[in-house]
Design a protein around this nucleic acid. Structure first.
Length: 893
RNA sequence: GGGCGUUUAGCUCAGUUGGCUAGAGCAUCUCGUUUACACCGAGAGGGUCGGGGGUUCGAAUCCCUCAACGCCCACCA
């Protein structure tokens, strides 16, 4: 007999258990070249982040996969790490400095970066510990950081390769510019926010045009109309003078199908330098501009969102100020026709929320359409190749529905802008040759002297050029997704041909939220296919968003967020993990509430107490005994094993299919409804078998370990196992312990007990009161006799008479179960009328069932087409129902 | 505007290629301290599977249609 505490206290054990795992080396795979490894690269949390529910669900799911595979005996590697998250981190440090009234320019690039590094080092350890708190069994000896020297080397190597292949180019383009971050953003780094704006109707030469951004009028070079528009058709190609607050300027009328005739006046002012749509229109109408001798690009807004030199009195104003004053000025000269309220989507920076200003800028791009990847005789673009690997099934996306989303995104992919005007990140490895004078000018104020960086005599190199004194390095850094795109292989030591890289790449599963399918997953596929000519992973598993109880997005401002760390402190890690996994299906959002976590805490405690009971009933010697199938003796033993086998089989299928929620529910139900409510209860009587009691429990602990590693490991230890559960071998189905007949027998006993209990409750017999009963067991006489003790105890009976058959007992409650009749002589408690009614209702139900089955069986189509097993089953059921009905009729008479 | 998805008990969701009288957890109600556990036990109520139509011997499941809700992408003055 072994006594353990009455309730499981997670806090007492979790940290110690984690330490034991880690120090034992259990997280480190043993490379075995004969075996195929299982590998996950952990999506690196931001180095400055704090663990949130998105991380928690990611860690829970990945740890389940990792532990499950490890227990299969597969060499299993989970690489942890952190992301430098360039813009996000830089912004954070800038904010901190702002509190001290310091700007990054006060410090200068070098000092500022030192500050950032310091900040990163501090917060990295926070997130590391929080990953540990979740029980994540990742290999910390292989931890990486997107900005460590190895990864920087990988980034530069890939950049160089792309540069040589002509895949990377520098070009002037209209880009999304955040005046606050003072950096370009990629298309998908732009968010949209619905906002209430003004729509200004401006008299515009022979036209009236509407705009939400009047300040761009200063950069207008054309008016666009639909070429099919009868009103304006004849004006296309003509030049008109336009009155403005700064005097007159000329525009040319261009025809473009994208202009909608019905909207507004059907004429649009065109500002190619500060609008994507307008830029494209200008490109399509180059010739028209040429003929009219009008330069299409007229830049009027600079990189800080300030009106440029060429804006006369508006020079130096912010766009907002300029808008206000310009509108006033236009009103004065009677050019404003009307001003309306207007709701439209404002483009904002996804990092800081500031309004985006589209402008023309020289940036580095990756050409997604250039054929560079050799594929037989042909060459394919990275876009084509990345589409192909998913189409061909080399990469499987779970759930499948995201294939379409992925293809759609790939098809519409434009050249990827990879340079950022951010200090923190991987510096673009490009050097520009300069004479003394320009170099001095440049170095005095690199931020404002970008234009000096020419296009001639450029070197792309990892090392500094030999005559370093004549070169300056490109001041820009790379998009943070450039480095995370290399994550699966850069973390394994590439570009060195390390053992790790050769053995562990490509990885097995990439598990992450569907919200970063484009940001990250697609980019990894692109970068890895290009660099290595292989896929980064074979399976993509996408989880959904965690929402609150009411399905609302969790957010700080709404105050409906759940802090996983707080929940862990309150309930323990295991319940938090379970609540994040159960109820979730790939690609679908999931609701989470504290109630749910509490529910799974209760389950953890249930397991603890089931183990407590088992340990109390087991001797030290029993613990040492090795289980063999012959130890299954009683009907109950054989039943629980049969159930256990079914559980193992179904769980394995679920795990292989990534149905973790289903697997979890299944084990939960087994433990609670089969093991605790029945097997354990039966064990309290005559039919004790401590070895089986323990063996079934231990097998369950193995199945549960990937889901709730801490409590299972602790119990394993209490069961005096020498090795740790984390390294145990996963259960297999054991055909020697499947006993169909006994399993069916026990189900009979179980439903007899349930039916008696139900009737007792209906009659309001006190739970504690024992009542008399008579069972006419028919063919089941032997079984019922054998299980007398169980039935008596669990149904609370006394003076139980068991006969093969006998006469109807007057004034007794009757239960018909197949061929078995059960009489409960409760004369004084029975209302004869009511009883007759009850039986009548039941008979009617039975008749309905019987006629429905009979209809089925006499249906030719059914008999011809339905599977044989099903027909057999229906026949069996019909027989049972008929016999029960027959007995009821007999009893009525 | 283009695409995707969801709709099953009061709530959150399961429901494999069509095949029990449609399930679970939570919540609700009744009763209960019988050698693990009140973080518990026993029992009960509750659903025309969003509406309509079709295919089929048979539809929650397949097809069509309508409705409501949600998400992603593109963004137009």
């Amino acid at each position: 007999m072994i006594e353990i505490e009455k309730a499981y206290e997670a806090k007492k054990y979790e940290d110690k258990i984690y330490e034991k795992w880690e120090s034992s080396g259990a997280f480190k795979p043993k490379i075995d070249k004969k075996k195929k490894p299982f590998v996950i690269s952990m999506p690196p949390p931001n180095a400055t982040g704090v663990l949130h529910l998105g991380h928690a669900v990611m860690l829970a799911l990945e740890d389940i996969m990792i532990r499950y595979n490890r227990m299969q005996g597969t060499p299993t590697l989970w690489v942890p790490g952190t992301d430098h998250a360039s813009i996000a981190t830089q912004n954070k440090v800038e904010q901190l400095l702002a509190q001290k009234k310091i700007t990054k320019y006060d410090l200068g690039r070098e000092e500022f970066l030192k500050e950032v590094d310091k900040f990163v080092k501090d917060s990295q350890s926070t997130i590391r510990n929080q990953i540990r708190k979740m029980g994540s069994s990742c290999d910390w000896t292989r931890e990486r950081y997107t900005l460590d020297s190895g990864l920087t080397n990988a980034v530069q190597t890939v950049f160089l390769k792309m540069y040589k292949d002509g895949l990377i180019y520098r070009g002037s383009r209209i880009v999304n510019w955040c005046p606050r971050c003072e950096s370009v953003l990629a298309d998908d780094e732009v968010d949209y926010k619905e906002s209430r704006e003004k729509l200004y109707w401006i008299k515009y030469g022979p036209f009236t045009v509407a705009t939400t951004r009047p300040e761009t009028k200063l950069g207008d070079t054309a008016v666009a109309v639909n070429p099919a528009d009868k009103r304006y058709k004849k004006m296309i190609g003509k030049v008109f003078p336009i009155k403005s607050a700064l005097g007159e300027y000329k525009i040319v009328v261009i025809g473009d199908k994208s202009v909608e005739m019905e909207f507004g006046s059907g004429a649009v002012k065109v500002t190619p330098a500060h609008s994507f749509a307008d830029f494209e229109m200008a490109q399509r109408n180059k010739e028209v501009f040429k003929k009219a001798e009008i330069e299409p690009i007229k830049e009027v807004i600079d990189e800080k969102g300030i009106m440029k030199e060429n804006c006369g009195k508006y020079k130096g104003m912010t766009t907002k100020e300029c808008r206000k004053i310009l509108v006033e000025d236009l009103e004065k000269i009677g050019l404003i026709e009307k001003i309306e309220d207007y709701i439209h989507n404002l483009s904002i920076c996804y990092r800081c929320g500031y309004t985006i200003e589209p402008l023309i800028s020289k940036q580095w791009f990756i050409d997604v359409d250039k054929p560079v990847i050799k594929d037989g005789a042909k060459k394919k673009s990275i876009k084509e190749k990345s589409t192909e690997v998913v189409k061909k099934g080399e990469i499987e996306i779970i759930p499948e529905k995201f294939n379409k989303t992925y293809f759609n995104w790939m098809e519409n992919l434009h050249d990827w802008c990879i340079s950022r005007q951010i200090w923190f990140g991987h510096r673009v490895p490009v050097w520009y040759k300069m004479d003394e004078k320009s170099k001095k000018e440049y170095e005095k104020n690199p931020e404002k002297s970008r234009y000096i960086l020419g296009d001639k005599e450029v070197i792309c190199s990892i090392k500094k050029p030999d005559d370093e004194n004549h070169y300056v390095q490109d001041p820009d850094t790379l998009d943070t997704w450039f480095s995370s795109g290399l994550w699966t292989f850069s973390t394994l030591g590439w570009p060195d041909k390390t053992e790790d890289f050769k053995y562990f790449h490509p990885t097995s599963v990439l598990e992450t939220g569907y919200d970063i399918l484009f940001f990250w997953v697609a980019r990894m596929i692109i970068m890895t296919e290009y660099t290595l000519g292989e896929v980064p992973f074979k399976t993509v598993y996408l989880h959904g968003l965690i929402r609150d109880k009411n399905g609302k997005k969790m957010s700080k401002s709404a105050g409906n967020g759940i802090d996983p760390l707080e929940m862990i402190a309150k309930y323990g890690t295991d319940p938090v993990r379970l609540s994040l996994v159960i109820g979730g299906t790939p690609g679908n959002d999931m609701c989470l509430s504290e109630d749910k976590i509490e529910g799974y805490r209760n389950f953890i405690n249930k397991i603890w107490n089931a183990s407590r009971f088992a340990l109390m009933n087991v001797s030290e010697e029993d613990l040492k005994k090795k289980f063999t199938p012959s130890m299954a003796k009683s009907t109950a033993d054989k039943w629980i094993f049969t159930e256990l086998n079914a559980l193992v089989k179904a769980t394995n299928i679920d795990m292989e299919r990534y149905n973790f929620s289903e697997a979890g529910i299944r084990i939960y139900e087994f433990i609670w409804n089969n093991y605790c409510d029945w097997y354990l209860e039966i064990s309290k009587g005559e039919h004790k078998n401590p070895v089986v009691l323990l063996h079934v429990l231990k097998t369950s602990l193995k199945l549960l370990h990937p889901f709730i590693p801490f409590v299972t490991e602790k119990l394993w230890e209490l069961m005096k196992e020498e090795t740790m559960l984390i390294s145990e071998i996963w259960p297999k189905e054991d055909k020697n312990t499947i006993f169909k007949k006994e399993a069916k027998d026990l189900e009979e006993v179980r439903s007899i007990i349930s039916k008696i209990r139900s009737l007792r409750s209906e009659l309001k017999v006190e739970p504690a009161k024992k009542i008399n009963a008579v069972i006419y067991a028919g063919k089941q006489l032997k079984l019922i006799e054998e299980k007398r003790e169980v039935i008596e105890r669990m149904a609370r009976l006394e003076n139980l008479k068991i006969e093969e058959k006998g006469k109807k007992i007057e004034g007794a409650k009757i239960i018909i179960h197949g061929n078995i009749e059960i009489y409960l002589p409760l004369k004084d408690m029975i209302d004869i009328e009511k009883e007759a009614k009850r039986i009548k209702v039941e008979m009617m139900k039975k008749e309905a069932i019987i006629s429905s089955i009979e209809a089925k069986l006499s249906n030719e189509g059914f008999v011809k087409n339905a599977p044989k097993e099903l027909i057999e089953k229906e026949k069996e059921k019909l027989a049972k129902e008929k016999s029960e009905l027959f007995k009821m009729v007999q009893n009525m008479v």
